[in-house]
Design a protein around this nucleic acid. Sequence first.
DNA 1: GGTTCCTCGTGAAACGGTTCATAATGTAGC
DNA 2: GCTACATTATGAACCGTTTCACGAGGAACC
Lengths: 341, 341
Amino acid sequence: MTQQAAHRRASIADVARAAGVSVGTVSNVLNRPERVLPATRERVEAAIEELSFVRNGSARQLRAGTITTIGAIVLDIANPFFTDVARGIEERLDRDDFTLMVASSDDDPDREQRYLRLFEEHGVQGVMVVPATDDIEHLLAMRRRGTGVVLLDRPSSDPSISSVAVDDVRGGELAARHLLDEGHTRIVFLNGPHTIRQCADRHEGVVKELAAAGLDPASALQEITVTSLNAEGGEAAIRRLLESGERPTAVFCVNDLVALGVLRTLRTENIAVPADMAVVGYDDVAFAAELSTPLTSIRQPTHELGARAADLLLSGPDATAEHVMFQPTLVVRGSSSMPAR
Amino acid sequence: MTQQAAHRRASIADVARAAGVSVGTVSNVLNRPERVLPATRERVEAAIEELSFVRNGSARQLRAGTITTIGAIVLDIANPFFTDVARGIEERLDRDDFTLMVASSDDDPDREQRYLRLFEEHGVQGVMVVPATDDIEHLLAMRRRGTGVVLLDRPSSDPSISSVAVDDVRGGELAARHLLDEGHTRIVFLNGPHTIRQCADRHEGVVKELAAAGLDPASALQEITVTSLNAEGGEAAIRRLLESGERPTAVFCVNDLVALGVLRTLRTENIAVPADMAVVGYDDVAFAAELSTPLTSIRQPTHELGARAADLLLSGPDATAEHVMFQPTLVVRGSSSMPAR
DNA sequence: GGTTCCTCGTGAAACGGTTCATAATGTAGC
DNA sequence: GCTACATTATGAACCGTTTCACGAGGAACC
């Protein structure tokens, strides 16, 4: 290795000079090697090696236009639901040799914007986003400017933007119906803020089902907003509830992480599940079945969700928008239902 | 919204024309608004709005040079260990207004290369990578070319590259020692391929500890390589083992996902844990404590790992390389130890 | 009224690639 | 020996920004 210049990286011009050819030829070696004589090609390749030249992606893209990368923005990269979806995306993308970059908005519209901008400015082919707010005007605008957009885990309110979602209202209904069937008449719902559509929808489903059963949602349902959608959030929320003297018989958690926090707390507080309190989660993550009290949960087809979203994005900007809606299913386990004897 | 031209996005020149100013002025509005008269600024801003202009990041970067983004390449984005690390990275990065893009190599050196190239070509400030192979020559080269590199979860074999890792040999020792203390004299280790350094190191730790106890590792240790480092991999491996007629008394799993698969299988096979078989995992993920048989595991400081790595990357390319090594701790739970009576 | 200084705005030169029309060279055919 | 045609290599234009030396126009001062 000859000594490296301290700063500026080697450019195509440096390579050309070193190999005694023109820049055009170097570019050809890089992009259509068959068009250049083996002898020259080798000379150029040697120069590339020698200078440890790396293409400048910005320059390349500036001239050539597009890039085979797509971006995904999820609410929380530490949530297994989203990473399972990401796996689904990746697998589909691999088939077309596309590349995936994942970013996490942390439910923060500003962060979402920042990443969206970053992706768009860098010319990704498209973006899949789990929007942090209800307002998708900025996504529509992005779409109009020519970057593909697919809404993930959220039905599109606009026909021109594709979406792949799971019916969250139905998920709320399933959970509520199940708890009603188990004889509960009052449900505590540890939910996220309604600015997150999924949360609002699940709430709506619960309300609907309670009403259908002839109960007054105002009294039969208590909604508590957790500070963060993870185990710590669940733990804090249930602890606060218990300290206030309440002892609900049924708790529905907006996701399995929150449910995990609840179960953990109930165990330390010696509250029996499901005898004293039934718990239902959401997402049916891998560990749900193996918990000390196996967790009843609403299963969503994460993999298909991601794969389908990738499909839509790869089908090109001119394809007509599609709105895919998957159905969730209820998986009953010990946390909500006494074993039959 | 006036009708949008079908294709080419508005450029700074279009904006300049629409606002009746020069391109330089538009650029100034974008980058140093205080240098331009409020009246002109407003005119330009109106034009930007009207044309829904978005900066071309490639051009910008080509000219301006650097970008405040860093990339991370992990082995598996669906593994909670890595996403917890990613959270640690994000939080540290936020303080400096840096942006994080995550990609998953899936243990595949080719994919790792691809993402590395992508990141480098796009001029990220630095890259954190959990290398898929032992050979880090390509990372050294990247480092020489001026892109920051920090090895994640893996000690650096080269002094010029920073690394932040957890002592995996020690982790293996802790697990083995614990199982020996519990009276086991033979351990089955469901491990990943030794091309992954963490796996090789943990194996080394186990071997060391067995030898220190006067046992012959050749007979006291059986290593089985799982096909994938997740619950399915664990399930497949333990099932194969059981079908071959073996009934080890102690199983050490290379991570908690694998352990989850094992526990799941043992339950369906009615093999009591820990009475008939002790299980130890690795990573101590959030749900480990709440499993039906709470999982003994080796805890790693994920958050600190990520934060420290981010620190090193942000300290700039000229800072001397540091090699941080955290120590893992053993967390004993019911899956490996009978409750004291 | 002339000099100096400031504030704004301009225009053109980079940045590092890709692409394309064109030139140079060689080969074949007649 | 001339034309026709490949095959390779060249060089300049171009992509859309940022940056910087410079000019125009006022204001302030003597």
